[in-house]
Design a protein around this nucleic acid. Structure first.
Lengths: 226, 226
DNA sequence: ACGGTAGGTCTACGTTGTAAACTTGTCAAC
DNA sequence: GTTGACAAGTTTACAACGTAGACCTACCGT
């Protein structure tokens, strides 16, 4: 795996580093993303990274921001607020989906990174348009975004294992663990074991996830107005 | 901080260890929960713990299970399914709330630990009663539970800092970070800054969180039937 | 030409999880 | 009662991690 930019250039820069850090995390999980590993990937001493990041948390924050930067926020339209909100939340999910192992890094960056802030502001905007008070919009928006991040983080099949062998082993182990349950004590879980381990379609999985969040927002709004 | 059980007893056991591991995590965050620390707390060599846990992940899993064991699942009643479901989800939140820093450990234990399984089965039961297919109940139940776990994990004010000084510093830093934003570019975020950093009431925070999830379930069910 | 500084290097330290070989306390069976 | 085996705790050791601090060095504005 060569460095993302031309290997002849010796000069590093934070953006490139964050990008290839993300590649490591995507490929082998967050545990594999170590200072030494990233340095080696760029043919550089580990300490060199500290010229660009104050410490490892700073690097992880940059990776989170890097992911949030992929959000393609839809332009405002004249559609109803809830339709637009759905599109905004879908844009968040779309940006996170390619990085299930690293998506959790965005949780604490939404109110810091510019792209996270843009998402948050737009979300609150639509919520206020939908009738929420500013404070309620803040709370509802926060949880909606957090839920969707978790949706990606907990995506079934996004286990840490990198090679297909270990991954398949992990899946088999999970399947066996559920198959070992008593169908008498846990009739529904055993009946839905396949779905619980790996949903039929990831697209459906995400669609339902977003539906749940949006429906929740609509429902809570109705309740607050009553 | 003395060991949870009598200090004269030399014999360790997994349950006691998991409990005091949880105490460490609650008090000082997950990072402070190291094998050596836990061993020292029990006046024992670090390697002694490996007689009871195969490795650190195993210990963390036990801590997760320990938390799930605190769920007091309400008895079935003749109330409508959604009312009962709300009570079940509230029971989950109630069990997690005392441990915001460790609650994330439960995410991967729900379909493993007996108490997690009981929660999952009961949740699916109520969803099926509400009209969901078994597979949909699985998906909806999964996301609902994950959302609520995240709700606790991301509870504002549950930062890693242990002593009040560092905690206050962290809050101040966050506040300053939001206060530095342009009210012109981010009018809603700056207006709701206080709420975003620390909600007025934690009880309201959790009530709204559960409301959102339940409302989402109700809304999605209506949509699926249409 | 030259001094400062940004960027990369080297060495070193403390902490972490844990493998492997050992001791010891306890109890069942003869 | 002696013994032998097994479970539980100890000792020592190692590799990998994050990172502090002192160093070198190439470049660039004056």
């Amino acid at each position: 795996m060569p460095p993302t930019s031309s290997p002849t250039t010796k000069r590093l820069d934070p953006h490139t580093l964050a990008t290839s850090a993300l590649e490591i995390a995507d490929a082998e999980g967050l545990d594999a993303l170590t200072i030494r590993r990233l340095a080696q990937l760029h043919d550089v001493t580990p300490m060199a990274l500290y010229r660009h990041f104050s410490d490892k948390d700073d690097l992880l924050a940059a990776v989170g921001d890097r992911i949030l930067a992929d959000i393609a926020l839809p332009e405002p339209t004249d559609e109803p607020w809830d339709v637009q909100l759905r599109a905004v939340l879908a844009a968040l999910v779309k940006a996170l989906r390619p990085h299930p192992k690293a998506a959790g890094l965005t949780l604490y960056r939404i109110l810091v990174s510019p792209d996270g802030l843009a998402l948050a502001e737009r979300t609150m905007e639509l919520l206020v348009e939908g009738g929420f008070s500013t404070d309620n919009a803040a709370e509802v928006g926060r949880q909606s975004v957090c839920s969707l991040i978790t949706l990606v983080t907990a995506e079934p099949g996004a286990t840490e294992d990198t090679d297909p062998v270990a991954r398949e082993d992990g899946l088999r182990a999970k399947r066996a663990s559920l198959a070992a349950l008593s169908p008498h004590r846990y009739p529904l879980i055993t009946a839905a074991a396949d779905t619980l381990i790996c949903p039929a379609s990831h697209d459906l999985y995400y669609r339902l996830g977003i539906d749940l969040v949006v429906a929740g927002i609509r429902g809570v709004r109705a309740g607050l107005q009553a």
